[in-house]
């Protein structure tokens, strides 16, 4: 059978780590390990061409904010897809945080992170620049245990 799925290798890596986490939650460690194996293959085959700068993120953030999330949200409202609406609600806020962090970094440079740590919420992707891990995620209300220190 010819491979026809439209996903890039980078997307396939994310699809596979998502399915690995789903298997973990269903207490299926063997299946989780197999999805992780596929995810590492796809991660190794993914990458960006040429030199990149932090400004390259701006165009994608703008497109997500101005059209990407709106396209999902308007259709999800029409068909009553509350799961997709939840994804939009969190994702839009996290994307706005990315934008504000990048604006602040452009102004302050490395001083932005001085004396602070970086934490990412594993549930929604919220980024905290703080001395201590947040007690509660301000976007999705996940507890401190769901944060990863970078």
């Amino acid at each position: 059978m010819e491979y026809k799925e439209p996903h890039t290798n980078g997307a396939l890596a994310a699809i596979c780590t998502n399915l690995s986490k789903a298997c973990d939650k269903q207490m299926r460690p063997t299946e989780a390990g197999l999805f992780d194996k596929l995810a590492s293959y796809f991660s190794q085959s993914a990458g960006v061409a040429g030199p990149v700068s932090i400004n390259d993120l701006d165009a994608n953030i703008a497109a997500d904010t101005e059209s990407g999330y709106i396209a999902v949200e308007s259709r999800a409202q029409q068909v009553g897809d509350r799961g997709a609406l939840r994804c939009v609600t969190w994702g839009k806020k996290v994307t706005a945080i990315h934008k504000s962090v990048l604006v602040r970094y452009a102004k302050q440079g490395d001083a932005l992170m001085e004396g602070s740590n970086l934490y990412v919420c594993e549930a929604c992707g919220f980024i905290a620049i703080a001395k201590e891990v947040p007690g509660l995620c301000p976007i999705c209300k996940a507890p401190a245990s769901r944060f990863t220190k970078i």
């Binding site: 994310a14 780590t17 969190w90 994702g91 990315h98 992707g125 919220f126």
Partner: peptide, 8 residues
């Protein structure tokens, strides 16, 4: 963070 968003 973008990986978490992509997975969602």
């Amino acid at each position: 963070s973008n990986r978490v968003l992509a997975e969602d």
